[in-house]
Computed example of a mutant assay.
Amino acid sequence: MPAPSIAIIGGGPCGLILARLLECKGIDYVVYERDGNVNSNRDGGSLDIHLETGQLALRQAGLFDAFQNHARYDDMALAISDQHGKKLFELGQGRENPEIDRRELRGILLDAIPKDKIKWGHALSSATSSKGDRVVLRFANGVVASGFKLVVGADGAWSKVRPLITQATPKYTGKTYLEWVIDYSHPLYEKTAGKVGAGSLISIGSGKNIIIQRQGNQSYRAYFGLQVPEILFRNGTNDLQEVEATRRLLLSDFYVDWSEEYKDLIRQATNFRAWPLYTLSADDLGWKPVHGVTLAGDAAHLAYPGGEGVNLAMTDALELASRIAEHGIEDLNRAVQEYEADMFPRTIEKILESTVMADVMYSNDPKAFLHCIGA
């Protein structure tokens, strides 16, 4: 049996919306996803889907009504405070960028794609070029696949497809989040719900931040934003399983000058997950087109998280699918060239904006963040 025309590596929002758009256009494809099955979804937080980018892709994919069933417009509320808990700014819910849990968005996309188009349990080990410029995919489960006319790397920050196009690799930003979840059963839940309510609270001061965000199941995720060496929470330097030791570290070395209500978040934390932040620079974009392969989403333009990542990725998928439909399978090189020419300036701008955002998020002055967002 001949290989499908297009192989999509990665079953996140970018890869799945691309698959759905190709499905709508009658273009053959296959998605390779590292998760073992549909029920082994990695946990994730909440995503804000923007009107002219992510929502547009969902409309073109015929999935906007399904999205509306899960979209949380009330969670667009945003409050900014200083490290002492004083609120400096509050933004209401009259915007058009609703939140949706990553898990819910993935479910919508999976339901819209034929089950036989997704190959579960296929973690890509390497992608190499063969004779005739065809890409050979080797997976950790021993499967080797080739014969595709186009391979799309939508496989995230540590893309195994990226080396076919560029030697660029993500660089550590010097910043890490420690995350934990406050659910209904936690003693701090009622106090947190009373403080934050719907949406998010961002507190900034002394070169650090704390973000608390409500999720679709009404739990809250708390993120402690730190400027730390890359190895501090890796390789056993600080074992996050030792919760009490992590609490002591945060209280003594990082949040000693923050108010007691924030210290209580630390004192009563029950678990932590480290999220070191990496980025590609604007200089990493602008590679020469490579026959039979391209990148999308974080694989192409990983940036500091600021609400644009998933929206840029879904726009990539929409633009690429549109170019492929316009030029056809027999002229994929032209489709990819036009897609990349559009993608570079669009994403370079957002990478630069995210760098500015990172600077003010980890500043001593929350008012600098307000200025950055135009408040």
Rank of each mutant, 00 (worst) to 15 (best):
Met76Val: 08
Gln167Cys: 02
Ser252Met: 09
Cys372Tyr: 15
Ser81Phe: 03
Tyr177Pro: 00
Phe344Asn: 04
Arg134Trp: 00
Val181Asn: 15
Thr173Glu: 12
Met1Phe: 08
Pro276Asn: 02
Leu58Phe: 10
Gly199Val: 00
Leu240Ile: 15
Lys350Ala: 13
Ile202Pro: 08
Gly54Pro: 10
Gly374Ser: 11
Leu21Gly: 08
Ile100Ala: 14
Gly194Glu: 12
Asn238Gly: 03
Gln213Glu: 15
Glu23Trp: 05
Phe224Pro: 02
Gly132Pro: 08
Glu353Thr: 10
His122Asn: 05
Leu285Glu: 02
Ile100Asp: 14
Leu88Arg: 06
Gln337Met: 13
Ala282Met: 00
Ala71Arg: 00
Thr294Asn: 05
Thr128Asn: 09
Pro366Gln: 03
Met1His: 11
Ser219Asp: 15
Gly199Thr: 00
Ala368Val: 00
Ser125His: 12
Ala112Glu: 08
Val360Asn: 11
Thr128Cys: 05
Ser40Cys: 07
Lys117Ser: 14
Ala61Tyr: 08
Gly132Met: 04
Glu242Tyr: 01
Ser322Val: 00
Gly10Gln: 09
Gly374Ile: 01
Val256Asp: 15
Leu110Phe: 04
Val151Glu: 10
Tyr278Pro: 02
Thr176Val: 08
Ala317Asp: 09
Gly121Ala: 10
Ala303Glu: 04
Tyr362Thr: 06
Gln213Ile: 11
Asp284Ala: 07
Gly306Asn: 11
Asp155Thr: 02
Ser130Cys: 08
Asn97Cys: 04
Lys191Ala: 15
Ala368Ser: 14
Ile329Ala: 06
Gly26Tyr: 09
Tyr172Thr: 05
Leu124Ser: 01
Val136Trp: 03
Glu33Leu: 11
Tyr177Gln: 11
Tyr32Glu: 04
Leu249Gln: 15
Pro114Lys: 06
Ile165Pro: 07
Gly309Ala: 01
Gly121Arg: 04
Ala154Trp: 04
Arg59Ile: 11
Asn235Glu: 12
Ala3Lys: 04
Ala303Pro: 02
Lys367Thr: 10
